[in-house]
C-alpha cells in the first residue's frame, strides 16, 4: 500500500463509479419525497432493507432470480409504503415537520425490530449466476454484477426522470413540491401527489435494496447506513435533480472507494458521512437553496 499501483487505483475508481451508480437507485426517490412532502424520511433505509429481504425470500422460496424479481419487489415496496403515507404520515402532517420526521424515526425502529424478529439478525446476501464473475477490460477487472446493476439503475433513473419531466403526474409533482398551496388552487390534488410520491419512493428504494444486496451482505440493522448514504448522494447531486442524483451516486461511489483504497475498507462509509457533513455545512444556507430546476 505504500506505493500507489495505477492499475489498482483505476480498478478502484471504475469499480467505485459503477457501484455508486448502482446505489443511486436507492436514493433517487428520497429527494422526491423531500421535495414534495418536505419530509426527511428516516425509514428510507429500512425500506431499502425490506427490498433486499423481499428478493431474498422470493429467491429462497420460489427460486426467482433477484434480477427478475425487481419488478415484483417494486410492486411490493409500492404497496407497503402507500398505506404508511395515507394512514400514518398524512395525519401527523398538521403537527409540523418535526412530527413527521420523528414518526418516520419511530417507524424505522419498528421495521428494524420486526426484521430482527422475523428474519433473524443473521447477515444475508443475494446470489445470481453472475455474482462471482468478473469482466476484464484490459488489465482492469470489474465484477459483472456491478455493470449489470449500474445499467439497471441508469435505466430506472432515466425512467423516473421521464416520469417527472414528461408526464402529468410529474408536472403535478413538481408544482406541488414548489408551492403546494398554489398547486392545490390551480387544481392539483396535492395529497394524492404526496401519496403517489411516497409510494413511488417505496418501490424505487426497495429495488435499490435488491441491487445493493447483490453486491454486499446486509442485516436487519443496515438501514441507517443506507439512509445516510442515500442522503449523501442526493445532497451531492442537488435536491430534486433526478439525473443529478445518479451522477451524485457515481461521485460518492468514487469517493468512498478511494477512501477504502487509501484508509482501509472500514472507512468506506465513514468517508461518505464526513463528506455529507462537510457538504451540508458548506452549501450556503443549507442545501435547500441548492434546488435546481429539473
Amino acid at each position: 500500500m505504500n506505493s500507489i499501483d495505477p492499475v489498482g487505483l483505476a480498478n478502484t475508481v471504475l469499480g467505485g463509479a459503477l457501484l455508486g451508480g448502482l446505489i443511486a437507485l436507492s436514493a433517487v426517490g428520497l429527494s422526491l419525497v423531500l421535495g414534495v412532502m418536505k419530509l426527511v424520511n428516516l425509514m428510507h433505509g429500512q425500506i431499502v432493507v425490506l427490498g433486499a429481504y423481499a428478493a431474498f425470500y422470493l429467491a429462497a422460496f420460489w427460486g426467482i432470480s433477484p434480477l427478475l424479481a425487481l419488478p415484483i419487489v417494486f410492486v411490493l415496496g409500492f404497496a407497503f409504503t402507500a398505506p404508511v403515507q395515507h394512514f400514518i404520515l398524512a395525519p401527523v402532517a398538521k403537527h409540523g415537520e418535526e412530527a413527521g420526521l420523528l414518526t418516520t424515526f419511530a417507524l424505522a425502529i419498528i421495521l428494524e425490530n420486526l426484521f430482527i424478529r422475523f428474519f433473524s439478525g443473521d447477515s444475508r446476501s443475494l446470489d445470481t449466476a453472475f455474482s462471482r464473475e468478473t469482466l476484464a477490460i484490459g488489465p482492469i477487472n470489474l465484477p459483472t454484477i456491478y455493470l449489470i446493476g449500474f445499467a439497471i439503475s441508469l435505466t430506472v433513473c432515466l425512467a423516473v426522470w421521464m416520469l417527472v419531466t414528461r408526464t402529468s403526474f410529474g408536472r403535478s409533482l413538481r408544482a406541488s413540491s414548489e408551492d403546494p398551496i398554489s398547486a392545490a388552487i390551480v387544481g392539483i390534488h396535492v395529497s394524492r401527489v404526496r401519496w403517489g410520491t411516497f409510494a413511488l419512493n417505496g418501490g424505487l428504494a426497495s429495488m435499490g435494496g435488491v441491487l445493493i444486496a447483490l453486491c454486499f451482505s446486509f442485516t436487519p440493522s443496515s438501514g441507517s447506513e443506507y439512509l445516510l448514504t442515500a442522503f449523501a448522494i442526493i445532497v451531492l447531486g442537488g435536491l430534486g435533480n433526478i439525473m443529478g442524483t445518479f451522477v451524485g451516486g457515481i461521485a460518492l461511489g468514487v469517493i468512498q472507494s478511494l477512501g477504502a483504497y487509501f484508509f482501509g475498507d472500514g472507512y468506506r462509509t465513514f468517508v461518505g458521512l464526513v463528506m455529507l457533513i462537510i457538504l451540508l455545512a458548506i452549501a450556503p444556507n443549507g442545501i435547500l437553496k441548492r434546488r435546481r430546476s429539473l
Binding site: S224, L227, F270
Partner: peptide, 8 residues
C-alpha cells in the same frame, strides 16, 4: 446532520 455525525 447529527444522525450522520453519530454514525461517522
Amino acid at each position: 446532520g447529527t444522525l450522520a455525525l453519530a454514525e461517522a
